[in-house]
Structures are given as C-alpha cells and as structure tokens.
Design a protein around this nucleic acid. Structure first.
Lengths: 228, 228
DNA sequence: CCAAAAGTGTTCACCGTACACCCATGA
DNA sequence: TCATGGGTGTACGGTGAACACTTTTGG
C-alpha cells in the first residue's frame, strides 16, 4: 500500500514500474545475451531478461544496476537506458511499465553468473538462437540490438566489450561479430588507431604457437567517448 | 485506489507515471517550444511541458498523444518517445516517473493553441530564450533538442516541420535554424534532391514581389524514412 | 622449414565543400 | 530598371574501400 503523506497524491490507480536489462557480451565469437529462467509465475519456467520492480525511493538507473547485480552478480558495467515499454497487456498480473536498459559486459568478466533466489537458472544465449521469451522481452532485445549496432557507427561503444588489455585482432573480432561481416585488417587498424583512443601497453601477448600480438589499452577508461 | 483484481498485484507502493511532451516547431525563423502555464500547485504559475498522468488502461504513446491534444489542441503530428526521467525527488507530491516524448509540428499548424482547463496559459517560446521551467523540464528539453539535432544528420526528420507543400528555400531555412548555421544553397539543393524524397507539385509560389519559387511535396508522406 | 596469425602502404572512387553569376517577378 | 529572392555547375580535397606480401613465433 502506498504510504500516505501529507502532500497531494494523484488519486487514480498507479501502474507498477520495472526495469529490465538486456545484457550483451561476446562469447566464443558470438554475440550473446544473459537470460534468467523464471522461478515464479507468470511465465514460470520461461527465459526472461533480468529485471524487477522499482523501489519507491530508488532512481531508475540504480534500480537497473541493482536488479542486474542481484539476479546475475554483474556490476560495474556499461549501462544505458534504452526505451520504455508500456503496452497495456504486456504483463498478465497488472499494468506494468518497463523502463528498459542495455548493458555491455567485457569478454573476460565472470563467465558463469550466479542465479538469484527468484531465478531457476541464469545463462548466456547466443543472439542468433534465442529461446522463446516471456512477456515482450523479444521485442526489447530486438530494439537493444538495433541500438547497439547503430551506435557502432558513431561511438566507441564497442570498447565496452573489451577487457583492460586486448589486441587489435580481438577488437576487430568484436566488430565483425557485431556487424556480422568481415572487415579488412589494414583499414580496420588504420581507423581505430586514428581515433587516438588506445595506446600500446608495450607488452606482447604470446597466445600460442604463432607470432605474438601487441597489447593495447584504452587511454582514458573513464570516458565513454563519442566520435566527432 | 488501485482496483483489486483476482490476479497477483505487486504488494509495494507504485509510483505515478506521467507522459510529458516537448513540442517543437519553427516560427518566425526560430525554433520554438510549446509550454503551458500551470494553473495548480505544485509550481503553480510556472511554465511547464504539456503532459499528465497515465490512465491505467492506456498505452504510453496514446497517453502522450491525448495529453498533447487535451492541453494544446494539437494532434496528428510526429511523436516519438525520448527518454524516461525518474529521479526520486523530481516531483514534490509523490514519486513520479515521466516517460517523455517529443513532437514536431509543421510551421503552418494552428498558430495559437488553445489552453485547457488545468492550464492558465499556453504559448510558443523561442528555444533561445525559454523562461524558468517547472520540475526538471529544462533537462528534458535539453535532451530533446540534442536528439533532434542529432537526427538531422541521419534521418529526414526535418520534413516533419514542413507543411504539405513548401519551397526549397523554406526547407533550407528550417535546416539553418535547427543547425544554427547558414548553408550553401547549391549544395543544400543538390543533397535534398538526391534523396529523391520530394517532388515538384508543378505549381509556383508567388509570395510577393520577386521571382516565384517552385513548390515541392513529400512523395510518400506516410513513411518517415531514415537515410541509408 | 612449415603453419598460422601479426603486421604493414598505396591507389582509386566517391562525396561533401567551396564558390559566383544569371533569372523572373513586382513595384 | 531596379531590388529581391530563385535557381544553376564545376573543381578540389579528404575519406572510406579495395587489395597482397612479409614477419614472427612454436612445433
């Protein structure tokens, strides 16, 4: 029940508000999304986006970050508001407005997220073969993917998928997965280096039997810079 | 009071949900925004964005369109969701989540919008000299303006400001106002015509003492096309 | 010495930009 | 005939795309 205060309160029924998060990462050279299997009705046993109800004294961004942490153990990652979904019958229980976010997780971050109490299971699913999803979560994912790909063109958002140090080949692989096409190695390196956004660590990555690759890092990790 | 149903309802306090709309147009070669003067507390007498509370069985888009129509008499215009603002203390009455939209109104559309019952006044204000605004509406406008300008680059959104028939000079004027810089006439015409999005009506606009200008119209008004 | 990934320059086509003059009309 | 906005083409530079071979390492 809403806590009555002395101040005016809008006297009509209020909808519930949730945040839901589309968590992207690159695993095994595939774009993947983190889903939780619902432990409770509605849609019990179906896969869904991590998310949950907004606390009455909690900022929206904080709610998204909290739900992500509670349901998957992930925190400290890039998180941006996506869109707000509010079709009248998207939740069978009651009217629910979902403020959706998307998150980008570096490749190396905890490979096996932990499941929370209200989730029967948590796991990464390749974007190309997602299971059936609860509610309108398939629509949310579609919009998040569209936004992600669009942002590759005019931002440096792809760096959010990279661990602290990485090689240019690894970065190129991320772009190729996201754009779903192969890129020319020389043009790619020229373009990335011309941004003057990353620098060599000075070390080499010996990753097997072949020629070692130079390691790079982002110069100013705090800023998420926008090109131009 | 929320109508209790037989179905489960999340047993914690729900926030109120509103939609607010940033209405842009071009008037007298200036980018302008439609504001309403609040008739009731809080922020009584201050200027604010048109908007209001979401009905429990109403889609978000419908709510934005309805509030716009009720408070200003404007309907049938381009309307797109912008962002959702939900800082905990943005409304002194209670917790309010605002799903914001922006609308683009053609130049010729009703110059003097009518004021609704809960507004003391309605009027257009040049973007460059806005009054102090209620709540966090200045932030909302800032974000809407940023989005609008960004979209000029990769969409044909500017056509939403044009009446059914218009001249290339008028269109160029709109771009100049939005970008806040003058453009080369020949390059502008070349670029616009190469989109193959508009066609001549065949008529001439005699608008005074000088050479008449050719009139154009959008070929397929239904579609809001994205370049590329 | 062989396999496999790392690393490196040049050429060309296209597009955005800069730039100046004549035309049609009403007064 | 003059003032005013309408209408038109070319030349240049920069950027993105295509393209193949050498280097370094481990086995």
């Amino acid at each position: 029940m809403r806590a009555p205060k002395e101040t005016f309160s809008y006297p009509y029924p209020h909808p519930a508000v949730t945040t839901d998060v589309v968590v992207f990462t690159i695993r095994d050279e595939r774009l993947s999304i983190l889903l939780v299997k619902r432990a409770n009705p509605p849609h019990q046993g179906e896969w869904a986006l991590p998310g949950g109800f907004l606390a009455i004294d909690e900022d929206l961004d904080a709610c998204a970050a909290r739900e992500l942490r509670e349901e998957t153990g992930i925190s400290g990652v890039y998180l941006e508001q996506l869109y707000t979904f509010g079709a009248t019958h998207r939740d069978p229980r009651e009217r629910v407005i979902s403020v959706t976010y998307y998150a980008l997780v570096p490749q190396d971050a905890l490979a096996t997220p932990r499941a929370a109490s209200d989730a029967a299971d948590v796991g990464w699913h390749p974007f190309e073969k997602l299971p059936d999803l609860a509610f309108d979560h398939a629509d949310i994912i579609a919009m998040a993917h569209q936004r992600l790909v669009a942002k590759l063109d005019y931002s440096t958002i792809a760096f959010q998928f990279m661990p602290e140090v990485f090689t240019l080949s690894e970065l190129q692989c991320v772009y190729e997965v996201l754009l779903n096409q192969s890129l020319d190695k020389r043009n790619f390196r020229k373009r990335i280096l011309s941004l003057e956004l990353i620098e060599e660590t000075g070390k080499l990555r010996r990753s097997g039997k072949h020629r070692p690759a130079r390691e790079y890092r982002v110069k100013h990790p705090k800023r998420v810079e926008i090109i131009k």
